[in-house]
Simulated scan of single mutants.
Amino acid sequence: MLVSVIIPCYNEEAVLNLYYKEMDRVTGILSNYDFEMIFVNDGSKDSTLSILKQLAKEDERVKFISLSRNFGKESAMYAGLKNAKGDYVVLMDADLQHPPATLVEMLRIATEEGYDSVATRRMTRKGEPPIRSFFARQFYKLMNKISNADIVDGAMDYRLMSRDFVDSLLRMSEYSRFSKGLFGWVGYKTKWVAYENVERAAGETKWSFWKLLLYSIEGIVAFSTAPLSISVFLGMLFAFFAFIGLIFVVIRAALYGDPVAGWPSMVAIILFMGSVQLVCLGILGIYLSKIYLEVKKRPIFICSDSNIEDIRL
């Protein structure tokens, strides 16, 4: 039975050799499986690609796909999924925050208990900034309320999937991808494995708070139209308030004949209404931009170098 392990890499020169040594140890324990390790170099600017080529020379199990530029982790994962040939496919980061040793238990669960997917989640967010943890928890709660994608709090990209599960993912070749939502949307029988949060073995994280915020917006837009409904509701609500306010102004003018009084509050109301309109237009613009990118039918990734002979683009 072949297991394909997909490892997206962006400027990971500091950890690649550490990761390979640990994976080599774990695959030695799992000697009854065949492995291929597909490293996807996502436009790294350091010596990541050189290290991957050297590893590929030393170990025929090591495959690499080098993208022509930095397309983002989602595109790198899709490139790996598209070229994985395994009966089981594993997504894993190279920084050792996804412990390779957990793969032993994940494979046991999939083969003995009959699960199509074995996913991992963090039991705690130890070592993560408190403000990031707070917003992350709120995001998961919001996503589960406004979308039909089952996303577990603390869910990681570290996941083992059956061939059927992977084929179902590949049928969704949308340009703007949010894999955490896609995993939940396709369904299948999934078991969650919890583990303690692990710090990076070396190097620095590529995910700033701003990038995580943009990624969360991507997820909301990809799996829910609730923001559009909210903007319609806000429009109706403030139209009602404006109507009540108009009646109040007319009655006051008729009774007291003082149309000038209260202009500061009127200006504040106009500014507030204008800001609500701009927010609603912004929400609509985000959805339109996603449609614009989808209809262009641009490739999700472009490969510039690989040691996979029959690579699928």
Rank of each mutant, 00 (worst) to 15 (best):
I311W: 06
M273D: 00
R25T: 10
R312D: 00
K189T: 09
S31V: 05
S179I: 12
L142V: 11
L169I: 06
K206Y: 08
F139P: 07
Y115H: 13
G72F: 02
S173N: 15
V232W: 10
I217P: 00
V232N: 15
D42V: 07
F64H: 08
S231T: 11
V89E: 02
A239F: 08
M1V: 13
L16I: 14
S168C: 12
L30G: 03
F64K: 02
G274D: 00
N41I: 06
G154M: 09
W192S: 09
I270G: 00
C280I: 00
I6F: 13
I7M: 10
A14M: 08
L170M: 12
W263R: 03
L170D: 07
V260K: 04
F233N: 13
F223E: 05
K206A: 11
P100F: 13
L52Q: 01
L67N: 08
I311F: 11
R252C: 01
H98D: 15
L142P: 02
S208A: 04
L81I: 12
D95E: 14
Y78G: 02
V250L: 09
A254E: 04
Y78R: 12
L55I: 04
P129G: 02
A268N: 01
L237F: 13
A149N: 07
E74Q: 15
M23N: 05
P259Y: 05
G154H: 08
Y19I: 00
V260N: 00
Q97A: 14
Y158V: 06
C303E: 03
M1F: 11
K297F: 03
E294H: 01
T27G: 04
P99T: 11
S289I: 03
E174W: 06
S66H: 07
V250I: 13
N307M: 07
